[in-house]
Structure formats: C-alpha cells, structure tokens
Design a protein around this nucleic acid. Structure first.
Lengths: 210, 210
DNA sequence: TAGTTAGTGTAACTATTGTTACAATAAACA
DNA sequence: TGTTTATTGTAACAATAGTTACACTAACTA
C-alpha cells in the first residue's frame, strides 16, 4: 500500500505521515454502485481516494435525490471530515461511480494528525475549500441553468470521471440524479441527439461534443 | 473591545487567544446595505461577527444574484477562511443585512493561530462545518422547494435575523435575492396575504405565521 | 421460441414560472 | 400644490418543466 500511497500523496505529505497512514489505514477496493455512506450514518473513518470516482447525493424528506458532484482521485470527502470532527450524522449519500480504490483512516488519527502534521492540516483545510467550491458550482448549476444545460453538463461530467465518452446509464437513472422525470430526460436527450451533441443507444449514451 | 469579545467568544477561546485577538483585531461598525466582500476580491482579513447579520450572495455570469444564507453573531465567514487559506478570490458577495459589529483579523494571524491554539483550530473547523451545512440547506431550498415555499422561508429567515416580524423590503429586492421576477413575487405575496400568512404594506411585510 | 420485463419514444395535457404591458397609488420633491 | 418617481396589482400570454398514457422494441428467461 505504501507504494501507491506515495505515488498519490507523496508530494503532499511528509514521510512520517505517509508511514503512519500506511500503518493505520485500511486499503479497500470497491465495485461501482456500492454505497459508501448513507444519510444519517455516523462516520467513524474517512476515505482517501486513490483511484476511481464517487458520486455525492443529497436527498429531501420525500426521498427525492439530487446529485451534488463527483469526487475523484486525490480528493477526500469533506462532508466526512465535517461529520467526523463534529461527530454529527452524515448529510449526504456517497456511492461509488466507478471501480474505486481507497484508504480508510480512523477518526482518532485524523484528529490527532491535525496537531502533529502541518501538511495534514493543510490538506484538510484545502479539502474543505475544494468541496465548498464544488458545492457552490452545484448551486450555480441548479439555480442558474435550465434542464437541458444541466443535463448536458451532467453527461460531460460523468464521461469525464469514467474516462470514457460512452456512458452506461438509463434515462431513469439520469432522471433520479437530476431530480426530474424520465420523460423530461428522454425528451431533452432526443433534442441533443438531433443537434448532434450525443448519440443514443439502449443503456448507453455517446458524448460527441466533449 | 476585550469586554465584548469575552462576552461573545469567551466560552470558546482561551485568555491568551482573546488577548491576541484584542491586540491585532480591528473593531468595525457597519451600516445595513454596506458591501463587505465582492466577488473576485482577494481577502486579507477575516471577520468575527459580534452583532448583526450578513447576507451571503452568489452571482452568475449574467449578473443575476441569488441569496445563499445569512450569517449571524458568533459566526464567521467560511468562504473568507477558504479564500484566505487558499489565497484565492472570493466566490461570493457579502452585504450587511442589519447594523453590524465585527472584528477583522489579519490573515497571517489566523494562519499562525491554527498551529498555536487548539480552540482556534476547532473554531475554524466548526465554522467550515456550519457553512457546509448551510450551503446544503440552500441547495435543498433551491432544488426541492417551489417558489411559494422558498419565498415564505426567505421572509421568515429575514424576520429572524432582523429580530422583527415586520421586514422592510420591496418586492423587487426579494425578486433579486431569489433570482426571479418582481411580478412573480408580487403574485405569490398576494396569495400569502389571502391565506393569512402575511400582511402587505408599501415597502414592508409583516409575517404573521412565524 | 414465446412470453415477460426493462428501456425508450412520443403525444397530449397540466402546472409552474417567467414576460410584457399597463393601470393605480403612495411617496418624494421641486 | 402639481409633477415625478417608485412601488404595487393584475391581466394576458409564453416558455419550461412535470404528468399521464400508451406504443414499440431490445433483452432476458422460462
């Protein structure tokens, strides 16, 4: 594990810290679709993403979902930080988008390292900043864009984190992520196809205008 | 200044830190409507709120605004933290909602205190957490509520931070904050009045169902 | 291979929100 | 006091998004 760790985080953390992470961190490989965090969960460890992507979702009282953003390699989940340090419940749901490799760090360590390692402190603060920025972008998307623009952005983002211009997804899946209905998605997708931006197939969409 | 500081933050910070804040902090009184932070600004000091409330706004490329939330006494602006520590530009606009008293802390201090004072570190992390939570609530409001619910929530929030069930505002002001048109706001306000939730007057609205 | 299920296409309609236009009136001001 | 400006009310209409209903077909399965 130390090798991959050094490759991914070597430029960020000093050797002592890398060593400690190596000792207490638990390496995990996750399949796409696996639920990592559920709303209301108490979090006892935080994930360091080595490879892959995780989809972060918000839900309202009625159970309607909404995608907030994807996190990728080199990131961690600031919501988790937030929950761990405040020892409160998770406000979000996290689902593996792709094959994912990560290292789980126990809460106690993550707190004590804040005082011990300057680079860790910096990493945690930077993570908060990044997640804040992404949340603001999510607000922009929801508040200022119309559904057709939101959908196209979603398709591009998904293609990006999957490293593939062909995404495997049904119209219903998309509707759930964007908090709208399947009919609305099908309607707009057809328009996008007519405009030459995508190619539709059963269970998959090819993004042409990346 | 030390007295008000101790009253507001005494339970949070140790005496040494309070003393330091007292030495380097600059006390300011701000009138309602004053712009504290503009989008794109480089931030060189962070505000500790002593009294009053500040409105945090987001803007898109076309210049359309959208309120994110209000921050109140005991809070600080996590966006400011975020910008200071990352030395990046402000992503938001901050405008005094009421008469506001605050203490400005220079960036250098705020960074060095992170290593020096555990309570300061905790305060900063807690602030990030709080702001994250509020941003998520803003997302909920925008994504899951209809305009009439959003408007009523806005009116209640505004009454709350102003400590007054009568709020001084025009329909146009509200439309700007909620990123919609004046006609839409007037229409819904009239409905709310008919339903006995508010009383309308020129330039002011009384919230009955607080 | 026939039957079933999941996914997609499309029409018709409703609901919500946004836009344009203009009248009425209160407040500010010269 | 008469004029101007800001604010609000309302109608009529347009655009966008959400809903219901049903047909069609690819893929799976018994």
């Amino acid at each position: 594990m130390l090798k991959t760790l050094t490759e991914q985080y070597g430029y960020l953390f000093e050797d002592d810290l890398l060593q400690e992470i190596n000792e207490v961190g638990i390496y995990k490989e996750i399949d796409p679709g696996t639920k990592l965090i559920e709303i209301g969960d108490y979090i006892k460890s935080m994930p360091l993403l080595i490879e892959g992507a995780i989809k972060i979702l918000r839900e309202d009282e009625k159970g309607d979902e909404l995608i907030l953003y994807f996190i990728e390699q080199g990131d961690t989940c600031a919501m988790t930080l937030s929950c761990c340090l405040g020892s409160s419940k998770s406000e979000i749901r996290a689902i593996a988008e792709t094959d994912t490799k990560l290292i789980m760090i126990p809460v106690e360590k993550m707190e004590s390292w804040l005082g011990k390692y300057k680079t860790w402190q910096k990493f945690i603060l930077q993570s908060y900043h990044d997640r804040m920025t992404e949340l603001l972008e999510a607000v922009d998307t929801i508040a200022f864009l119309k559904m057709d623009e939101r959908l196209f952005k979603y398709l591009k983002d998904k293609a990006m984190v999957n490293h593939n211009e062909v995404i495997i997804v049904t119209h219903q899946d998309i509707a759930n992520d964007l908090h709208t209905s399947r009919v609305v998605i099908s309607r707009i997708l057809k328009k996008l196809e007519i405009n030459g931006k995508i190619e539709l197939s059963r269970n998959s969409i090819k993004i042409l205008d990346l």
